[in-house]
Amino acid sequence: MKKLINSTDSVVTDALAGMAAAHPDLRVDLAHKVVYRRAAPTPGKVGLVSGGGSGHEPLHAGFVGHGMLDAACPGEIFTSPVPDQVIEASHGVDGGAGVLHIVKNYTGDVMNFEMAAEVCAEEGVEVGTVLVNDDVAVKDSLYTAGRRGTGATVFVEKMTGALAETGAPLGEVAKLGGRVNARSRSFGVALSSCTVPAAGGPTFDLGDAEVELGIGIHGEPGRTRAPAAPARELTRVAMDAVHDDLPLSGEVLVMVNGMGGTPLVELYVVFAEVAAYLREKGAVPARSLVGNYVTSLDMQGFSVTVCLLTDQLTQLWDAPVQTPSLRWGR
């Protein structure tokens, strides 16, 4: 294993030091491992806090800034943050209008955010929570951990962020987050495993002519292994899975997301196929993102996330955003 790191223990703090040096608009609390907007809290605005394991960059710290998150809590690589971080961040962004926790649905994330939310409540911070669970590769059921949260997190963070910026109350922002999540679906495909620094080697081995279908964002194997295939076919597998779960129509926001090790030129190849698929179904790719947004370290592969737009959602998506990794309109 070769990585651009100083030691497997210090990856996350070293990277946070880099973020602090690179982004004067951010304030990085290295001791507590929280990344804030420089001017947090914004009085009267709902504070948005998200977090999760590291290794998914730019998620979440790359989305801290005007029009999106107020703070992010990066855990260790692929390990959800501890409650302390979330409690600290929640205090730090509470401008009197309460705090929204945006949580991807993983057992660890949910438990740690819940524990933090309880302490916040005890300590007088009003907390709402949006749970993101958009991954159609996982069958939802009462008896399981439920669907994973993946790409839709970016949509939820962007749109709730835009709404919070208007001064909307916590309940409304939380409800909007739930609505965005409900209208979004994702599916991921891996061409290679990633290598977790502390593990020192690839999480799984994949033959030279095999891919993993229905992967998450933690370098875990997918639901099934399949023969490698042209981009057109892999895209169709992903889009069919999405479409079967949430019929695609009307204007949609679509993200073709790289898993970290896939060149942008390939993501555009996939996007061309996604756009063609959508048109075939009578849907319109009205807004789009192509690039690395929710990654799995150095994994090669892609995920596609679709959100059925409404006028309100389109407006919130188009609203100005000023973060390290998403930036437009101001």
Partner: peptide, 19 residues
């Protein structure tokens, strides 16, 4: 422990508990 977690999880259980 991390290897067991790599097989059906995300390859961090040993690292997590050791930390």
């Amino acid at each position: 422990l991390t290897r067991l977690d790599a097989a059906i999880g995300d390859a961090d259980h040993g690292t997590n508990l050791d930390r």
